[in-house]
């Protein structure tokens, strides 16, 4: 009989082979520590502050239980208006990116030459490599009073909107466009060419093909992309600060209260979470979350 030399690594390996539970624990220990210990706990610690008090004298946070911070979200007109404004901006950004992404996706996937398609794919993803603040300042410089936009449009008698909600929507759409364009492009690319041929054979013109064939088939991809554009817009505050003029978003209130009044900031951070959960529940019904 041959004696098997058991190296330590071999010993561990055979132990794990005999114990499926230990195997599973070993596999999940690291990611679960991260997910629960770092990710969930820290978020929970932040959110629990929403139920706490602030000492008016020293601005120090005192543990306790109050729902006042949540009641204020509804009853203070400025808070409520800010939540609704942010929701509106996030929805507008999502619609805008969809409007840009579909024609571009159809062109890239079905019309453009391979060279042009690769070029456009790079052009879409390239801005992702640039810093977020750099892109914000670029938009700021573009739409400033004596900036590129007004200079280009001056011969046509058009003046830019100035910093405000429209430029904020445009800037956020610019920032999050790749997250919408890429899934939409991929989805359209997967549509067989003969579907377009069949649509034409049945007498559908261009628009009819887009609305009745392409759109229903890529809806899951659009919803997947919109989860990103919508939730990222809800949480943003630097765009409002740099190109928003006097626009105040949920993020602006959180940012200005995080040191001054953490309970209000924490209560406000629940608002985007609530919006996104509602959005995801709607999206889940369409089955498109499986495509993310």
């Amino acid at each position: 009989m041959r004696v098997i030399e058991k190296a330590p690594a071999r010993a561990i390996s055979s132990y794990l082979y005999r114990n499926p539970k230990a195997r599973l624990a070993g596999l999940l220990a690291l990611p679960l520590t991260w997910l629960i210990g770092v990710y969930i706990i820290s978020l929970f610690l932040l959110l629990i502050t929403a139920f706490w008090f602030i000492d008016p004298f020293t601005s120090k946070v005192r543990p306790g239980f109050t729902l006042d911070n949540f009641v204020n979200l509804i009853t203070v007109p400025a808070y409520f208006a800010t939540s609704m404004r942010t929701l509106g901006i996030a929805l507008a950004v999502t619609v805008l990116t969809i409007l840009f992404a579909i024609p571009l996706g159809i062109f890239m996937a079905k019309i453009a030459s391979p060279w042009l398609r690769n070029f456009l794919a790079v052009a879409i993803t390239l801005p992702l490599w640039a810093g977020y603040l750099v892109k914000l300042l670029a938009m700021r410089l573009t739409f400033t009073e004596q900036g590129l936009f007004n200079w280009l449009m001056e011969p046509f008698g058009i003046r830019g909107p100035g910093f405000g909600i429209p430029v904020t929507i445009l800037t956020l759409a610019y920032l999050w466009f790749p997250y919408m364009a890429l899934p939409v492009f991929t989805a359209i690319r997967q549509l067989p060419n003969n579907l377009f041929d069949a649509s034409a054979d049945l007498g559908a013109k261009g628009w009819a093909t887009v609305f009745r064939m392409v759109l229903p088939l890529i809806t899951p991809a659009i919803i997947a992309g919109s989860v990103f554009t919508f939730s990222l817009s809800l949480g943003d505050y630097l765009a409002a600060r740099f190109v928003g003029g006097t626009t105040q978003m949920i993020g602006s209130i959180i940012a200005s209260n995080i040191s001054l009044n953490p309970p209000v900031a924490a209560a406000f951070s629940m608002v985007p979470i609530a919006f996104v959960v509602m959005y995801l529940m709607v999206a889940r019904r369409t089955g498109s979350l499986e495509r993310i």
């Binding site: 601005s59 007109p77 808070y79 105040q248 602006s252 200005s256 209260n257 009044n261 209000v264």
Partner: peptide, 15 residues
């Protein structure tokens, strides 16, 4: 009014 009151008031200024 304390700084806390000012902080709360400031949010309503910006609306």
């Amino acid at each position: 009014t304390s700084f806390q009151d000012w902080t709360n008031a400031w949010v309503t200024v910006k609306g």
